[in-house]
Simulated assay, not measured.
Amino acid sequence: MAKGKSLNSLMAHLRNKHNIDISGSKNKLDLMNMGYFHGFKGYRFIGQPNNRIPLTKFDELAAIYKFDTQLKTLLYPHIMFIETAIKNYTLNTLIKDCNSDFEYIFTHKLIDHKSENIGNSKYREKMKKRLDLKNKILSSIAYNYADGKDVIKHYLHSNKPVPLWAVFEVINMGEFGFFLQCLELKYRIEISDVLNVHTTSHNQNGRILEDVIFLLKELRNAVAHNGVVFDCRFKKTNPPSRLTSYIESETSITNIRFINIIDYFILMVIILKKLGTPKREIQKLLRDLENHSENLRTQIPIPIHTSIMGSDFRKKLTKTKSYI
């Protein structure tokens, strides 16, 4: 049975096997804090494991690790704010002047499948998504009831239907994205209009918001579970062209591909602005990003910094500041 290595042995392994300059109490403490597997193995490449970063000093890897932590600290509160705010805009649109319980909304407003001919492939696909969504929401209600969530217990113990706002309290960001996806067209457009993101040229069928939610969901999960974010390896799918076209039209920033973290900041800036976030708060977000990036640039070789941030980072940052 293979034996584990002590911290000193791991440092020797990094020197002898990986040609990494690592020594002294500071490097030892950094390695202990970040961990060999989470730290060194997680941060020695960009995007894909075969795209190794040509590191020669452990201090360089520690700087990237610290930068990644700083990114997560910046991103998390804004992602959570965006999720909560868009849920509230959706809630306000759907329950005004009508029954607010989930079953009513499911029956009368989560009916995107009706835009297709009954029985064709698109109808069946949309119907399946709708039914899958209901199963996920009911599972979330059951889980939170078993977990003692007061808001769910109250309605179930009172033999009352669970209202939509309570459902939004317990579903995750991905499930909310599917909720938006299943909404009838007129409601998708109404919510988009309220947020001023609906355009006939880019927001076909009012689907920009669900695109935003699905894209930020992957980032949110990585941030919340302490995954690596600096190189966007959390991205599972490419965003639809309607979203990238909308972002480029809205900001006049080109080459939006979400392969560098700056593109996620650009998207968040757009949504934060639409939600009425004070300009000084958005400016601080970008200023902090710029400062963290500049600090990283002084601690690692410039070509590595360019590979991480993208060759057009400064150009995009400047244009984003102008957009604000």
Rank of each mutant, 00 (worst) to 15 (best):
M1L: 09
A2V: 10
A2D: 13
L7W: 06
M11R: 01
H13K: 15
K17T: 13
N19M: 08
N19S: 08
I20R: 08
D21A: 12
S23V: 14
G24H: 06
D30I: 04
L31M: 14
M34D: 13
M34F: 15
F37V: 15
H38R: 15
K41A: 12
G42D: 08
G42C: 11
P49H: 10
D59Q: 11
D68M: 00
L71H: 07
L74C: 02
L74A: 02
Y76D: 11
M80Q: 10
E83A: 09
I86A: 08
Y89D: 10
L91A: 12
N92A: 10
L94S: 07
L94N: 11
I95H: 09
K96T: 13
C98I: 14
N99C: 15
N99E: 14
S100D: 14
D101S: 13
I111S: 11
I111L: 03
D112C: 08
D112H: 14
H113P: 01
H113Q: 12
K114L: 11
I118W: 05
N120F: 03
S121E: 09
L138H: 05
I141P: 03
N144F: 13
N144D: 11
N144K: 13
D150K: 14
V151M: 03
K153W: 02
Y155K: 02
Y155P: 01
L156C: 09
H157V: 06
H157M: 12
N159C: 07
N159L: 04
V170A: 01
G174I: 00
G174V: 01
Q181P: 00
D193S: 12
T199R: 04
N203M: 04
Q204F: 03
E210G: 04
F214N: 05
K217S: 08
K217N: 15
A224Y: 06
G227D: 04
G227N: 12
K236W: 06
T237P: 04
T237W: 12
P239H: 05
R242G: 03
I247R: 11
E248P: 09
S249W: 08
R257P: 01
I259C: 00
I262V: 15
F265I: 07
I266M: 10
I266C: 11
L267A: 12
L267P: 03
I270D: 07
K273P: 01
L275N: 02
T277V: 12
K279R: 15
R287I: 02
D288S: 07
L289D: 02
E290P: 00
N291M: 04
N295R: 13
L296G: 11
T298Y: 02
P301H: 05
S311P: 01
S311M: 10
R314C: 05
T318F: 07
K319Q: 14
